[in-house]
């Protein structure tokens, strides 16, 4: 789901860079004020580990394969803000050294895989831990967290590509969600296995996450995701391209003018495009709510069964 250069239009690039810069600004501040040098070194080493784990790839139906991304894993192990920084650093290295994702579309990739994925993953996982602090609850929470993070990041990428007019929303959202729902299973299994393993051997390392389960942080991150999603849909639902409209009124801007002439949709405002954007965002939110309710009920029944037994 790394978006290469050349697919996003100017408004989407500017918008995603603004969101990414805000997220990273908050993240860097949080890391600087809360982390000692020792924790920082540890975080950096774990960044290298997350990068190395991306070597794990799972075959998905149809001969394609997806690889482990690790956004939710980083959030579970390090907390949401350090995870944001770690994932962005990994994305920067991928863009510059491995031709994986573009340099100018890095803003979009950071929003998808370094902001949305860790926030969603952390939110689901911390919800699970809050309901029940057992090993199986943590594993189940980690599985759903990783799966949801994977799908949410894919949906965000689909929204961005669609907002740029690269392909129709239905195709993008359908294809991306389908493949990443499959890849997410592999991602979830690895994340759950890791959490279960570490919780059994070194439960002290997993205690770090209990301190971040503050409702304020939860509400804040949820709000950030919602604002990003609505911002994107608002951007998308405006007239096709502000730049092109300007270029149309100013004949001297030859370059942009030719582009708008080449595009058959130039200046043509699709009726109901705002509805479509709203539907996309709403569908995502409803899916998220259904998933979290299902997780909540599942974990609660697990806990009550356990309580009845013990």
């Amino acid at each position: 789901m790394h978006i290469p250069d050349g697919m996003l239009d100017a408004k989407t690039m500017a918008g995603t860079w603004a969101v990414a810069a805000t997220g990273l600004g908050i993240g860097v501040r949080a890391v600087r004020t809360r982390m000692t040098d020792g924790r920082l070194v540890l975080m950096a080493v774990l960044a290298a580990l997350v990068f190395a784990l991306q070597m794990l790839n799972f075959p998905v139906a149809g001969g394609t394969s997806g690889h482990f991304a690790g956004g939710a894993l980083a959030a579970v192990l390090l907390g949401p803000w350090p995870a944001m920084i770690v994932m962005s650093a990994v994305l920067v290295v991928q863009a510059f050294f491995f031709a994986d994702g573009g340099v100018i579309s890095l803003g979009a990739n950071i929003v998808n895989m370094a902001v949305v994925a860790p926030l969603v993953g952390w939110w689901v996982y911390s919800l699970a831990v809050r309901i029940s602090d057992t090993r199986s609850a943590r594993m189940a929470g980690a599985f759903v967290a990783a799966w949801a993070a994977c799908v949410a990041a894919a949906l965000a990428a689909a929204l961005m590509l669609w907002a740029s007019g690269a392909a129709p929303l239905l195709f993008l959202a359908g294809a991306m969600t389908f493949w990443h729902a499959l890849i997410g299973v592999g991602e979830g299994l690895v994340t759950a296995g890791l959490v279960g393993y570490v919780f059994r051997l070194r439960p002290d390392l997993m205690r770090a996450d209990t301190e971040i389960l503050r409702p304020r942080g939860l509400a804040l991150s949820l709000g950030a995701v919602a604002v990003a999603a609505t911002g994107l849909s608002l951007l998308a639902s405006r007239a096709p391209d502000g730049l092109e409209t300007v270029a149309g009124t100013l004949p001297s801007l030859g370059g942009a003018g030719t582009a708008s002439k080449l595009s058959p949709m130039a200046g043509y405002i699709v009726p109901g495009i705002a509805n479509e954007a709203l539907v996309g965002v709403l569908a995502g939110l409803v899916g998220l709510i259904i998933t979290s309710v299902a997780v909540y009920l599942g974990l609660r029944s697990l806990r009550s069964r356990r309580a009845a037994r013990g």
């Binding site: 070194v41 540890l42 080493v45 190395a52 894993l73 296995g193 279960g196």
Partner: peptide
């Protein structure tokens, strides 16, 4: 196998954690 990958990753995490402390 995927579930075992989780354990491998967990093992690697613990080793990386210790390595991080040694490095610091």
């Amino acid at each position: 196998r995927w579930r075992l990958y989780g354990n491998l990753a967990g093992n690697l995490f613990l080793r990386a954690y210790d390595r991080g402390e040694r490095i610091h």
